[in-house]
Deep mutational scan, measured.
Amino acid sequence: MDCGICYAYQLDGTIPDQVCDNSQCGQPFHQICLYEWLRGLLTSRQSFNIIFGECPYCSKPITLKMS
């Protein structure tokens, strides 16, 4: 499936590997796309290497662990 942010399947050789945990959403994202999206939200917060925010599609909580 394509990334829900950039709408591409491959981005710099990677495929969407982050998925919204909401079973009714399940939208996939590239890690870098989701990172940039969450960084741009005023409501997002970060604790060590984990960013907490809202899914761009369903607005439910989503987390991103940076590797």
Rank of each mutant, 00 (worst) to 15 (best):
S23Y: 04
M66V: 09
R39P: 05
E36M: 03
Q31N: 03
I15A: 12
L41R: 14
D2H: 04
G40S: 12
Q18W: 07
Y7C: 13
Q24G: 09
S47K: 07
L38M: 07
P16G: 00
C25K: 04
Q18P: 00
Q10E: 11
R45E: 07
L11E: 03
C55G: 02
P56V: 04
D12G: 14
V19W: 09
T14G: 06
Q10A: 11
L11I: 15
T43E: 10
P28A: 08
C55W: 02
L11K: 10
I62C: 09
T14Q: 14
I32T: 15
F29W: 01
K65P: 13
Q27G: 00
G26K: 08
N22F: 05
R45N: 06
W37M: 05
C6S: 03
C58T: 03
K65L: 05
P28S: 08
T43G: 12
S23N: 12
L34E: 01
F29Y: 07
R39Y: 05
S59M: 06
S23M: 13
L34C: 04
L64M: 08
Y57S: 14
T14W: 11
D2C: 09
W37D: 02
I32A: 12
R45H: 06
L42N: 11
P61H: 01
I15N: 04
C3W: 01
Q46H: 05
Y35G: 11
P28R: 11
K65W: 06
Y7M: 12
D12T: 04
M66G: 14
R45I: 04
I32R: 14
S44M: 11
G26E: 08
S59W: 13
Q24V: 06
T14K: 10
C33G: 00
C33R: 00
D17E: 07
G26A: 05
S44C: 05
C25E: 02
V19R: 08
Q10K: 14
G26D: 04
F29A: 02
T14A: 13
Y7I: 02
L41P: 06
R45Y: 15
H30G: 00
L38C: 04
I50E: 15
P16D: 02
C58L: 04
D12S: 03
P61L: 09
I50W: 10
S44D: 06
Q10P: 08
L64I: 08
D2Y: 10
Y35I: 12
C3V: 02
P61M: 03
Y35V: 09
P56A: 02
C3T: 00
I62V: 06
L41E: 13
G4D: 04
I62S: 00
S44L: 10
Y7N: 12
Q24K: 15
V19L: 06
C58S: 01
Q10L: 13
C33L: 01
G53H: 01
G53A: 03
Y9T: 05
V19Y: 15
D17K: 02
Y57F: 14
C6M: 06
I50S: 14
P28N: 15
Y57A: 14
T14C: 08
K65R: 13
D21V: 11
I32F: 13
S23W: 10
Q10I: 12
C33M: 01
P61G: 06
D12A: 08
L64T: 14
Y35W: 05
R39L: 08
G40R: 12
Q46S: 11
T63E: 13
D21E: 11
S67H: 12
P28K: 13
L11W: 02
Q18C: 05
V19M: 09
G53R: 02
T14L: 09
L38W: 13
G26Y: 09
E36F: 14
L41T: 07
I15E: 07
I32G: 13
Q31A: 10
D2W: 03
S47R: 10
C25N: 00
Y35R: 10
P28Y: 08
Q31P: 12
E36R: 12
I50G: 12
D12R: 13
C55Y: 00
Y9E: 03
L34R: 00
A8S: 15
C3S: 01
Q18V: 14
Y57G: 11
C6E: 01
G26I: 08
L11H: 15
T63S: 05
I62A: 03
A8R: 13
D17W: 05
Y7H: 11
L64R: 02
L38T: 15
Y57V: 13
S47P: 04
G13K: 03
K65G: 11
F29P: 01
Q24R: 08
D2R: 09
F48W: 10
S44F: 15
Q18L: 08
Q27P: 01
C20Y: 03
Q24H: 07
I15Q: 05
Y9G: 09
L41M: 06
Y57I: 11
L41Y: 01
I62L: 09
T43S: 11
G13A: 05
Y35C: 04
I32Q: 15
I15S: 06
S67F: 09
Q46T: 08
P56K: 08
C3Y: 00
D2S: 07
Q46I: 12
V19S: 10
R39W: 03
Q31R: 10
H30T: 01
A8D: 13
S47F: 15
L64C: 12
S67L: 06
N22A: 03
L11S: 07
C6Q: 01
S59I: 05
C6A: 02
N22V: 01
C20P: 01
K65M: 03
D21M: 15
D12W: 03
Q31Y: 07
T14D: 11
S23A: 14
A8W: 04
Q24A: 06
E36L: 06
I32K: 14
V19H: 15
T63K: 06
N22R: 05
I50V: 11
L64E: 06
Y35H: 09
Q27H: 03
F29S: 03
L34W: 02
C3N: 05
G40L: 05
H30A: 00
Q27L: 06
Q18G: 02
D12Q: 03
Y7W: 13
T14R: 08
D21G: 05
C6R: 01
Y7K: 15
F29D: 00
I5L: 15
I15D: 05
S44A: 09
P28C: 09
Q31H: 06
M66E: 15
T63A: 09
